[in-house]
Design a protein around this nucleic acid. Structure first.
Length: 216
DNA sequence: TACCAGGAGAAAA
DNA sequence: TTTTCTCATGGT
């Protein structure tokens, strides 16, 4: 197994792409709603649904909670899985309404907030960590399918590399800084879309040069 | 036409 | 415990 070096990978990706300015949302509510809507869906589709929710004044958990399912089905349809995602948005809204002011929820310790979010229907590790990192601004690295594919390609994990293993790998070597960890995840997604999905062995890919340096 | 896109939960093995 | 199935749409 090759010794993982997330800081070097981060540095190379950042030098290549620069800051990604994630998460693309104006408010914490919008960010959290977007995290549900983007599940197994391209962001272009999820953002259409977020836009339609905003147009209808539904980017508010109390309002969302009281909105009839049928109205939400129509509003979020572009994001796909509209019935399931309506259930998940309602579950998140119910949780947030029950917790009181947003600031109070967001400022809970990251482990406490993470556990609470994981108990909400429709929120798994990736979605919970996205919210903890990008909405609450707490130092948590988000692992997604791109991360796993990339870490496997780098030889840092084998095929069974699980979520927690990859997350610990990053937490153990990167500064506990939400800005940097959030940027790292965003850069991995950017790189996957720009290089690894279309041209797996293209020249100029920061990951390819990282693999070369690992051989030294 | 088939496949993919920033998952998660439930059911089955 | 692990694997498989289901959920839905739009773009390529």
């Amino acid at each position: 197994m090759i010794l993982p070096d997330p800081p070097r990978l981060f540095h190379q990706l950042y030098e290549r792409y620069g800051p990604q300015h994630w998460w693309p949302a104006q408010t914490m509510t919008e960010m959290m709603v977007g995290a549900i809507l983007v599940q197994n869906t391209a962001w272009t589709q999820a953002s259409k649904a977020v836009g339609q929710l905003a147009c209808r004044g539904l980017l508010d958990f109390a309002v969302l909670h009281a909105t009839p399912d049928e109205e939400l089905w129509e509003t979020i349809r572009p994001a796909g899985y509209f019935r399931i995602k309506t259930r998940r948005l309602k579950a998140l809204a119910a949780f947030m309404v029950s917790q009181g002011p947003m600031a109070q929820v967001i400022h809970a310790g990251n482990q406490q907030l993470r556990q609470q979010l994981l108990s909400v229907y429709g929120i798994g590790k990736e979605t919970a960590d996205s919210i903890v990192c990008y909405a609450a601004g707490q130092p948590v690295f988000v692992v997604d399918a791109y991360t796993k594919r990339l870490f496997m390609r780098l030889g840092w994990v084998d095929g069974s590399g699980d979520y927690d293993t990859m997350q610990r790998m990053v937490h153990a070597t990167m500064p506990a800084d939400s800005g940097q960890l959030g940027e790292f995840h965003a850069l991995i997604v950017r790189n996957a879309k720009e290089h690894c999905l279309k041209r797996p062995r293209c020249s100029g890919c920061p990951v390819a040069s990282c693999i070369e340096q690992q051989k030294d």
